[in-house]
């Protein structure tokens, strides 16, 4: 991001902590509502934030999720420590999942997480080191209609 941030906030997410899952995304939504972000953009950010958060809860040890907002764009940056992703192109495919049966029983692990994130962000960068962790950088443009 090149222009000045008007807002930047960090959220800590703990792996395996299903009882607080969704808290970071809910806080992000409240912030965006307060600063008056367009509701269609807010919905897209919330979907991407929630899926990112759930990925940490299900697969990583911990992560920091940073929300930055500037006049032109909104950025979500997630840095996690955990098992990482061995095959990113495969993980980006709809329907591919390494979730356990227990997660699937709860309605997670449909292989929709990363594809949902990609669909809703204007720009996605992902990198991962197996055994160390994954980083995810999502950009949402604020003052132009998104190209379909």
């Amino acid at each position: 991001m090149c222009d000045e941030h008007v807002l930047s906030q960090e959220f800590e997410i703990k792996g395996g902590d299903f009882s607080n899952a969704g808290k970071a995304s809910t806080s992000i939504k409240e912030i965006l509502r307060e600063i008056g972000i367009d509701s269609s953009i807010m919905v897209r950010v919330c979907i991407a934030a929630y899926e990112s958060e759930m990925n940490v809860v299900m697969y990583a040890r911990r992560a920091t999720l940073t929300l930055s907002v500037s006049p032109k764009m909104l950025n979500l940056r997630l840095e996690d420590e955990g098992q990482g992703i061995a095959d990113i192109p495969k993980a980006m495919q709809e329907g591919f999942s390494t979730a356990t049966n227990e997660m699937r029983e709860m309605g997670f692990g449909a292989g929709m997480g990363l594809p949902n994130i990609k669909k809703n962000a204007d720009h996605l960068e992902i990198s991962s080191t197996p055994g160390k962790g994954t980083s995810l950088d999502l950009t949402f443009f604020l003052n132009k209609d998104r190209e379909k």
Binding site: C46, I47, Y50, E51, M54, M106, G107, F108, A110, M112, G113, N116, K119, N120
Partner: peptide
Amino acid sequence: SDLLSDVIA
């Protein structure tokens, strides 16, 4: 739906 990702999306 019973899939949370589906409902969120």
